[in-house]
Simulated scan of single mutants.
Amino acid sequence: MGLAEQQEQLGVVVRRFAEIAPQGWARLVGSWEATPDESGDVTLNWITTAVVHGGDRWLYGQVGYDEPLYDAVARLNDLSAEEGPDRRWTTLELLVDPDGTIKVELGYDEPKRSQGILDEQSHGRFERYLDTWVAEHGAVPTTPAPQA
């Protein structure tokens, strides 16, 4: 149990996120805020997006709600709480690239989006993520679009 189980569950989250992503995705960007109730059940506020190879340009948009992904993230949050209530994360930031590279950031402060605070950190950066991607990778993909 413990960290090994959490790492295994993170793998479940990453795999499910990739399974529901649109074809040709170049990066998946996920942000989840977790708010537990008195009984310990968690409610998630999420933003799940993808940068997609659009042939002559990059595309960006929301990845639809998926109950198995939601449940996998909620399970990951529950596992973090098993080590004590102060170890339960309140925010999970996840970047996934097709080559298997992942970046995870956990936060323990009060979630913002869930409280109606839509500042740069909690919301604005996702609205402008395509601009960030284009600044780093150029406006036009340099490799051919993936085939179906």
Rank of each mutant, 00 (worst) to 15 (best):
M1K: 13
G2M: 05
G2N: 07
Q6H: 08
Q6D: 06
Q7R: 14
Q7I: 05
L10F: 10
L10M: 15
L10P: 00
L10V: 06
V13D: 12
V14M: 07
V14N: 08
R15I: 01
R15W: 03
R16N: 12
F17M: 14
A18K: 14
E19C: 08
E19H: 10
E19W: 06
I20A: 03
A21H: 12
P22E: 03
Q23A: 13
Q23L: 11
Q23F: 12
G24Y: 01
W25K: 06
A26G: 03
A26W: 01
L28K: 02
V29K: 04
V29F: 07
G30T: 03
G30E: 04
S31W: 07
W32D: 13
E33M: 02
A34N: 09
T35E: 14
P36L: 07
D37C: 13
E38V: 15
E38L: 15
E38H: 14
S39V: 15
G40L: 14
G40N: 15
G40H: 15
D41R: 15
V42H: 10
T43V: 10
T43I: 02
N45D: 06
I47G: 05
T48R: 11
T49N: 12
V51D: 06
V51P: 03
V52R: 07
G54E: 06
G55A: 08
G55N: 05
G55I: 05
D56C: 00
R57S: 09
R57K: 10
W58G: 04
W58M: 05
W58A: 01
W58I: 01
Y60G: 02
Y60C: 04
G61I: 03
G61P: 06
Q62R: 08
V63R: 07
G64M: 06
G64V: 07
Y65L: 04
D66T: 06
D66S: 14
P68Q: 12
A72D: 11
A74T: 13
A74S: 14
R75C: 07
R75F: 07
L76K: 08
N77H: 11
N77M: 09
N77Q: 13
L79R: 13
L79K: 15
S80D: 07
E83P: 04
G84I: 10
R87Q: 15
R88T: 11
R88E: 12
T90G: 08
L92I: 07
L92E: 09
L92G: 10
E93L: 09
E93D: 14
L95S: 09
L95Q: 09
V96D: 05
V96G: 10
V96Q: 06
D97R: 11
P98A: 02
P98F: 04
D99W: 01
D99H: 05
G100H: 03
G100N: 05
G100K: 04
G100D: 05
T101W: 00
I102A: 02
Y108G: 03
D109K: 12
E110P: 02
P111T: 09
K112P: 00
K112I: 00
K112V: 02
S114C: 02
D119L: 02
D119H: 05
Q121F: 10
Q121H: 09
H123P: 00
G124T: 06
G124C: 06
G124H: 07
R125D: 04
R125A: 03
R128D: 11
D131T: 11
W133F: 04
W133E: 01
V134P: 04
A135Y: 06
E136L: 11
E136F: 01
E136R: 11
H137Q: 09
A139F: 05
V140T: 12
V140Q: 03
P141I: 01
T143E: 10
P144S: 03
P146N: 06
